[in-house]
Design a protein around this nucleic acid. Structure first.
Length: 228
DNA sequence: GCGACAG
DNA sequence: ATCTTGTCGC
């Protein structure tokens, strides 16, 4: 399954170069710092594609640390860009931002389904969204995009650093559940590694995915039905 | 030249 | 991401 990926439609080299440069510009805006104060509300963000040409983005806001769901919103729009590894944010962020505007209770920090700085140019979708909104963000991904790591111990809570060739820390590989494939946690904007990992662990409730991301994914399915 | 490649 | 059935292990 993850061994072979059939070639998708050819990505326009002009677009790729342009977006890559824009990404390098945005990278200068990213700040890594601890959260100013303990969050009272944490959001979960996830996008899916009900049809090949429609994107559905969801935001859920949970009270922290109770993790009680307080709000859920979604927004859909037409897909404008194909999926290109490393440029995922340009395909999903526009619609994500529109969904965010619908939230009445803005969160103190956002957990995004995808990577933060654990990206070839340190600008994964979590960092991208954080810069655009100037809100603290971090990413929780299910698959690695870049970097290398040692397999963390098979017990829940085990951690292992994700580093690039030069040894730079990109994120942490987190075993969120016993004997289940680990998660890749990395800071986005206005967040540091310690905070990202700490909040990820604090949001676990027996599932592989922490509640913010898990519920966002869950509601995406429900909203998908509402669309008919 | 040969892999790797979030969602 | 999405399409898809049965199946293994706790």
């Amino acid at each position: 399954m993850a061994y072979y990926r059939p070639p998708g439609p050819p990505a326009d080299p002009l677009i790729v170069r342009e977006l890559t440069q824009l990404q390098d510009t945005m990278r200068a805006e990213v700040r890594q710092e601890p959260l100013q104060c303990e969050p009272a509300f944490i959001a979960g963000c996830d996008s899916s594609f009900p049809t090949t040409d429609t994107i559905l983005s969801v935001f859920v806001v949970l009270q922290f640390p109770s993790l009680e769901l307080v709000e859920k919103v979604y927004h859909t729009s037409a897909v404008t860009l194909p999926y290109i590894p490393g440029l995922l944010s340009f395909r999903e962020a526009p619609n994500v931002l529109l969904a965010y505007e619908k939230l009445r209770q803005k969160p103190d920090i956002i957990m995004v389904d995808g990577h933060g700085i654990a990206h070839p140019r340190r600008m994964g979708i979590a960092a991208h969204i954080g810069v655009m909104l100037d809100v603290p963000t971090f990413g929780v991904a299910k698959q690695k995009l870049t970097g290398s790591f040692q397999e963390p111990a098979p017990t829940r809570g085990s951690l292992s650093p994700l580093t690039d060739r030069s040894g730079e820390l990109l994120g942490e590989v987190v075993r969120s559940k016993d004997k289940v494939l680990p998660l890749f946690v990395s800071p986005g904007h206005r967040c540091d590694q310690a905070t990202a990992t700490r909040l990820t662990l604090a949001c676990l409730r027996g599932y592989k995915l922490p509640e913010p991301t898990r519920l966002a994914d869950h509601w995406a399915e429900e909203f998908k039905k509402e669309l008919r």
